[in-house]
Nucleic acid binder design. Structure first.
Length: 306
DNA sequence: GGTATTTGACCGTA
DNA sequence: TACGGTCAAATACC
């Protein structure tokens, strides 16, 4: 990796270490849960940034000579801005979320992160333009929103990159005192009115996202939550267990009309990779997807294969 | 005046 | 070379 990129990386890691020490010191003393949450999220944010930098470094290493880092003078638009020119490496961290917004047209935009629209593009063959949003907290994640041609109430939301920021709601919540019981309940009502969301990946299969914790439990990620979609009993029989950690389980719908070899390949690649994350080495790069471990999600959608 | 959005142009990828 | 992603100046909004 280039020396110039080590410094911010070291800074982030150092900051994470210091914050961890602070947290350790506070654990013995009287410290509110909110402050603990805040410190933890700061620590996580630091490590996320550091890891992103490492990923960039990897991307940098993979850049072909033709697309290698260019002299800033080469492009007036990229002076001191984007050091790395190859976009494909960033697109690697992508997930796609289909949102049946129903009456809540704004729903796709309110996922708890702070997004700023920075581009709109007419896509060939699409009736509606594609809007691109970027987090303005120095976060690497981007988000694309495009209204479906078939159903204008349906938005396709594509997330790219990994969040390195602290979720806006999360940050404010950490700084606030614990809300009153009524406020918590009200928040829960709002969340329950949100549409069911489906995560669909470019590789051809999709997830239903099932929030496995109730509103009062979710804590750290209050607004990026989806209504709980109970798995039907008969569907459970068709689910192939892919893996889990303490709070997340991942299953693959056995009804998927992909070949058995494809299935086994996916499962093998899943189970053979990583100790903690069941999806670490998937080609669709779920290791980079910003899943919150508080979410339960299962692969139950077979539309893409029909 | 500060912030957010729009939009035309540039650039990378396929 | 066409298409899509991104940038940044221009514009709108508060």
């Amino acid at each position: 990796m280039e020396t110039g990129h080590k410094r911010p990386l070291i800074n982030e890691l150092t900051q994470g270490k210091e914050l961890a020490y602070q947290l350790k010191n506070h654990l013995d003393k009287t410290m509110s849960a909110q402050n603990c949450d805040f410190l933890v999220e700061k620590i996580l944010s630091s490590y996320e940034k550091a890891l992103s930098m490492l990923n960039w470094g990897t991307a940098f290493d993979e850049i072909s000579p033709r697309t290698e880092v260019s002299d800033p003078a080469d492009s007036p638009h990229r002076c001191n801005k984007n050091v790395f020119k190859k976009r494909k490496t960033m697109a690697k961290w992508s997930e796609q979320v289909k949102v049946c917004s129903g009456t809540m047209v704004e729903a796709p935009l309110s996922d708890g992160y702070s997004w700023r629209k920075y581009g709109q593009k007419d896509i060939l063959g699409a009736n509606h333009p594609r809007c691109t949003h970027r987090n303005f907290q120095g976060c690497l994640a981007t988000k694309q929103v495009q209204r479906s041609d078939e159903d204008s109430s349906v938005f396709e939301v594509t997330y790219k990159g990994r969040h390195t920021c602290i979720q806006a709601n999360q940050l404010s919540k950490a700084l606030e005192k614990k809300p009153k019981k009524e406020e918590v309940e009200e928040e829960g009502m709002i969340q329950d009115s949100k549409p069911t969301q489906k995560m669909q990946y470019d590789d051809g299969f999709s997830f239903k996202v099932n929030k496995g914790m109730n509103t009062s439990e979710e804590g750290a990620f209050p607004s990026f939550s989806f209504p709980s979609t109970p798995i039907e009993t008969e569907k459970l029989e068709n689910l192939i267990y892919l893996g889990c950690d303490s709070t997340t389980f991942i299953t693959l719908d056995h009804n998927l009309q992909s070949s058995d070899s494809d299935l086994s390949e996916m499962i093998n690649s899943t189970q053979n990779s990583g100790e903690n994350s069941p999806l670490v080495d998937w080609d669709l790069s779920l290791d980079y997807v910003d899943f919150d471990s508080n979410f339960h999600f299962d692969i139950t959608d077979s539309e893409m294969f029909s």
